[in-house]
């Protein structure tokens, strides 16, 4: 369970990215965070694994106070939280399987990391993760030779190899074309359903959010302006989140009528 209690974040340059945010996310939920760019979506997601530190309030994940974590305890905490990025953040020049295996380095001894010696279980886990996102046959191809959609699926497999309880995804489909975006969102959905992993996605495209997420959180200027099940969202609520009517930029595939 992730619990924000009156959380605020002000950057050193004075920008207020989160303002008095309170919300609770239960284990196994599929949550989409929507809002304009610069609204604070990215900040919110990154505070959960303390890639960004909060400035005020209290944030607990499974009962652990996140802002109190540092050093070894922070690293141990992060092992259970996977993260997927807009630009995939794969290691170019090495194979897909080595990329997936890199999720295991946190648990390995330095000697094993230095020489890339992964255990039998780790290698099987990596291959199984690739199988779950449907690109097992690409295991020995160099990561930078895959298409964008395939690269994002490798990144997803890498996250799965971490055996996470929570997956945070920061605009995972923004760099993909509509067809690949659907495939990747489908992967997220399946992982959430079959493995009971909490999935929290930042997403700019409203149509994808509505299609796949169970719950929508709308953010505007660092504040939560909508929080509720996907089914009950209204055009007015969307207008409130975006501060204007939706434009073509806000949807990926088609105009939506809600």
């Amino acid at each position: 369970m992730i619990k924000f209690e009156n959380v605020g974040k002000t950057y050193s340059n004075g920008v207020k990215a989160m303002d008095n945010v309170s919300l609770t996310i239960e284990q196994g939920e599929f949550v989409a965070i929507i809002g304009l760019s610069g609204a604070g979506k990215s900040t919110l997601i990154r505070t959960i694994n303390k890639m960004i530190d909060i400035s005020s309030g209290k944030l607990t994940v499974n009962g652990i106070d996140v802002s109190g974590l540092q050093g070894a305890s922070l690293r141990r905490f992060r092992r259970k939280i996977g993260m997927v990025f807009q630009s995939f953040n794969l290691i170019s020049r090495i194979s897909v399987i080595k990329n997936v295996l890199s999720a295991r380095v946190a648990d390995l001894s330095l000697f094993r990391v230095l020489f890339g010696l992964y255990s039998r279980q780790d290698r099987i886990l990596a291959l199984e993760s690739l199988d779950k996102v449907g690109i097992l046959e690409k295991a020995y191809i160099r990561a930078d030779q895959l298409s964008g959609g395939q690269q994002q699926r490798v990144a997803l497999a890498r996250t799965l190899a971490q055996t996470p309880e929570i997956i945070l995804a920061d605009e995972p489909v923004a760099a993909l074309d509509p067809v690949m975006a659907d495939v990747v969102m489908e992967d997220f959905k399946r992982i959430n359903r079959d493995m009971k992993i909490t999935v929290i996605i930042n997403i700019h495209h409203v149509d994808l959010a509505l299609q796949y997420a169970d719950r929508i959180i709308g953010i505007r200027a660092g504040q939560i302006v909508y929080d509720g099940p996907t089914a009950s969202i209204t055009p007015n609520a969307l207008k409130e989140i975006y501060g204007r009517s939706l434009t073509d930029d806000d949807v990926m595939k088609e105009k939506i009528d809600v």
């Binding site: 690293r75 905490f77 996977g82 995939f88 953040n89 290691i91 890199s102 380095v105 990391v113 230095l114």
Partner: peptide, 30 residues
């Protein structure tokens, strides 16, 4: 170098040295 891969490993809870060995060294080796 692009530090994205480094950031990705950091998010898995790897120490700085492991992040460098795992994510940066393969890109620097050649």
């Amino acid at each position: 170098l692009d530090m994205g891969a480094y950031e990705a490993l950091e998010s898995t809870g790897a120490s700085r040295l492991k992040c460098i060995l795992g994510a940066v060294w393969p890109q620097v080796k050649g």
